[in-house]
Design a protein around this nucleic acid. Structure first.
Lengths: 155, 155
DNA sequence: TATTGTTATACTCTATAACTATA
DNA sequence: TATAGTTATAGAGTATAACAATA
């Protein structure tokens, strides 16, 4: 795909800017996480599982905003890498409680450092105050909970 | 897909923020453009064709950053709506020059107003200075040409 | 009867390869 | 031999439907 410099008629559009910011970050993210053997979505799953104990597949999917059918394949992959374990909930045997293994916690730690370093590099073209303002503005636009408060999890 | 409030471990991630900002904007964009009978990408094509005269399909695709095979279907759709016309270039009969019809120019005008109004509403949670800073920061991150200058088109 | 996990299927979007006509 | 347009095909990603086990 031969790509010109984008014309101003595109770079003034919010849709173009969000899409390409996301694309560029996805590239950097893939590069940064490749040595750790996971992708960005798998890292998000590990982070959510680490932050909340005793989550079932469905509860974790709810927090991540992904479908339960998608979650099955994701957990299959992570279990294959021995980063998470499924076990039946004793109180409700329909549920699979998903937990990090020791290796999963260690992998999470290393990959999180790589992600933070990648984001720092990605935002390097901005002053640190502009970078902070960007993140705050994005959080306001996607309706994220206020960063000073605690996340109002509904589980 | 049952969606919880996103946990803080996600809303602090740049990847999550870009993706969901894009998703939310895409929803609003679809809603705003539906009455005009085109989607956001079709609008972008019309805008590029309007801004540059005598573009071939491949040249337009280059400016939009999309594949020439994707461009074929896009132009098919727009031609079916009688918003653009293909005509053979006299100087190189391999090329299709794509041009807006009178109806295409009119549709573009109305849809552009709808898009601008939609973006204004989308950014309403931010102060106007924060909104301006957000756009400037995104342009800096995406490597857009400086907004004060002219677009360095390579065609 | 409803819910959780699972599998199979369909659908969208995009990328790749190959064909044609022109150069 | 290379390029522009086109078509067909294949792949990733996601959504939908249906099924088994459990509540």
């Amino acid at each position: 795909m031969t790509r010109d410099a984008p014309p101003e008629v595109l770079t003034s559009r919010l849709g173009y800017l969000f899409k390409h910011a996301h694309l560029r970050l996805a590239e950097e993210s893939a590069r940064a996480l490749a040595p750790h053997g996971i992708d960005g979505r798998e890292l998000a799953v590990l982070a959510v599982l680490d932050a909340h104990d005793e989550l079932s597949q469905l509860e974790a999917a709810g927090k991540l905003g992904i479908d339960r059918t998608t979650m099955v394949a994701l957990i299959d992959t992570l279990e294959g890498k021995e980063l998470v374990e499924r076990r039946r909930s004793p109180s409700d045997r329909r549920k699979n409680i998903v937990q990090l293994t020791a290796a999963g916690r260690e992998r999470l730690r290393g990959a999180e450092l790589a992600r933070q370093e990648m984001e720092r590099r990605f935002l390097a073209p901005l002053s640190s105050t502009d970078a902070t303002r960007l993140v705050r503005s994005l959080q306001a636009l996607v309706g994220a909970p206020a960063s000073t408060g605690h996340a109002p999890d509904s589980v």
